[in-house]
Amino acid sequence: MANVVFDFGGVLFRWHPPSFLARVWPERVPNLEAGAAVAAQFFENYGGDWGAFDQGLIDESTVVDRVSARTGWPREDVQQVVDSVPQELQLQAGTVSLIEDLKRAGHRLFFLSNMPEPLADHLEQLHPLNDWFESGVFSGRVKHSKPRAAVFELAVTRFGVPAESLLLLDDHPVNIEAARACGWQAELFTGAAAARAALQARGLLL
Rank of each mutant, 00 (worst) to 15 (best):
A93V: 05
A93G: 00
A93P: 04
A93L: 06
A93D: 13
A93K: 06
A93W: 01
G94I: 11
G94D: 10
G94E: 09
G94Y: 07
T95V: 05
T95D: 04
T95P: 03
V96I: 11
V96A: 02
V96Y: 01
V96N: 04
S97C: 05
S97F: 02
L98Y: 03
I99G: 00
I99M: 07
E100V: 05
E100W: 00
E100K: 13
E100M: 05
R104C: 11
R104F: 10
A105K: 09
A105N: 10
G106K: 03
H107D: 12
H107V: 12
R108H: 14
R108T: 14
R108W: 05
L109E: 06
L109N: 06
F110G: 00
F111N: 00
L112P: 01
L112T: 11
L112C: 12
L112Y: 06
S113G: 12
S113A: 15
S113V: 11
S113Q: 02
N114Y: 07
N114H: 11
N114W: 08
N114E: 09
P116W: 07
P116F: 08
P116V: 07
E117Y: 06
E117Q: 14
P118A: 10
P118T: 09
A120H: 03
A120L: 08
A120Y: 07
A120F: 06
D121Y: 04
D121T: 15
D121H: 13
D121C: 10
H122I: 02
H122C: 07
H122M: 10
L123Q: 00
L123T: 01
E124Y: 09
E124V: 02
E124I: 02
E124Q: 13
E124W: 10
Q125P: 00
H127M: 01
H127R: 05
P128M: 11
P128K: 10
P128S: 08
L129M: 15
L129T: 03
L129E: 08
L129P: 06
L129G: 05
L129Q: 02
L129V: 12
N130V: 10
N130L: 11
N130I: 03
D131T: 14
D131C: 13
D131N: 12
W132S: 04
W132C: 07
W132P: 07
